[in-house]
Design a protein around this nucleic acid. Structure first.
Lengths: 229, 229
DNA sequence: ATACCAAAATGAATTTAATTCATTTAAAAT
DNA sequence: ATTTTAAATGAATTAAATTCATTTTGGTAT
């Protein structure tokens, strides 16, 4: 078996698996898990019914495949949407905006996530990876001193994802589209919490003295500019 | 048909319907919606399979019955758990504690809620009633002057239920039981928001930090000007 | 190029479980 | 006591997931 041939074969199999996943995602999203018939999915993927079972053990497993792929892509998308150089709060806002927008745009696929079996731990592995994006932002925030060391990341994670999830349902229910104020309000809440608790010296807001010094420096520079002309 | 007889008949029918709902709740909670067999439910309720279909159109409708009854009871329980004389924040804490405790205790039944069809509006009528408990507390808070008039109740509703829901999943996942700090932290967040500013970032007064950032940006531009010369 | 093998694919047959319905049983009315 | 109506039954039907005996395909060796 030549290397080229092996590649061709594998590529053919992967293309077929992709076709099945694509078909399944479409039919599941459109008809729901129960409403989707393997026969329809097979037809949409241009394979025989039995072929689906060569790639996935059963309908549940196929669902897990669709969900896993979706959340993997979400993780990549989120990482692309976040500016590594931005402040922690800005990163959180970028992530929040990305999250809300994408779960709204792909509401039907996201809803399928709840049909996975939480008992089957690996069914939700990719969701767990996605959640880690939040954890990394928060950890970096603490390391950088932008968040207090005692920041309750676990709680805030549930606040963040819970709020955005429920907000997306509310928006959908009311037939409304993405609303940035949801993210803004949420960030406000999270930021407010940080302010209330005793902040470390590093994170202390600049004093008026600091501002005045900065202004005086600017004033000096302006004078230099004027005289230089 | 005598009044007594009519009563006896109706009572008999209601008892039977109750038996079916009890059986369904038990089997659904234990086996999940897909895993539950109508045959098992019928056996547990001591009726024939066909009898189930005299009371409920199909399996989905039976699920809706179980969910509806559960959330109706939740509404009654919540109203009993809330002291009408207490302050708004105390009432919110009482409700939050009740909500988290009960969704943890009856996690399997609550999970079934996500199997209802959001399209079928009336499937979730009782859930909507339950949510109104929150709205009434908030409205009363605004009327009493304990909350600012512009309090974003809709947004806070999603924060409240979303956070508690996700927190319950986290606790379940980690095999932990009710943790009051979840409620405390949530209340803290909500209270902080009221104190700070509930609207959007646009209307917020700029913090010293914001001023400092703006000044630093001006300073950078000045430097560029100077070196450009 | 041909024959052979193993992997992949097929779709008809099987299985499982929801739903229906002709029949029976029980209750209410006359 | 008889008739009528409502409720209940469970065997038969139906729908859809899953299996599996058979066929097809692609790669390898002669």
């Amino acid at each position: 078996m030549s290397s080229t041939a092996r590649n061709t074969t594998r590529e053919r199999l992967e293309a077929r698996e992709s076709a099945i996943l694509d078909a399944a995602e479409g039919i599941f999203a459109q008809a729901g898990f129960d409403g989707a018939k393997i026969a329809d999915i097979a037809r949409a993927a241009s394979v025989a019914e039995g072929t689906v079972y060569l790639y996935y053990k059963n309908k549940r497993d196929l669902l897990a495949g669709v969900i896993g792929r979706f959340w993997s892509q979400q993780t990549l998308g989120a990482e692309a949407a976040i500016d590594k150089e931005a402040s922690t709060l800005d990163q959180l806002e970028q992530f929040g905006r990305y999250h809300l927008q994408s779960i709204l745009n792909q509401f039907d696929v996201v809803s399928l996530t709840y049909r996975a079996q939480p008992q089957q731990a690996q069914d939700l592995d990719q969701v767990r990876e996605y959640v880690k994006v939040f954890d990394r932002i928060m950890k970096q925030g603490v390391d950088r001193g932008e968040l207090p060391p005692h920041t309750p990341v676990g709680h805030l994670r549930d606040v963040f994802f819970g709020t955005l999830e429920f907000s997306s349902r509310t928006l959908k229910l009311r037939g409304r589209s993405y609303d940035h104020s949801v993210v803004t309000n949420l960030l406000f809440l999270i930021a407010a919490q940080d302010q209330v608790k005793p902040a470390s010296l590093e994170t202390a807001a600049p004093s008026n003295e600091d501002l005045m010094k900065k202004l005086e420096s600017i004033q000096r520079q302006l004078k230099e500019l004027k005289t230089a002309k």
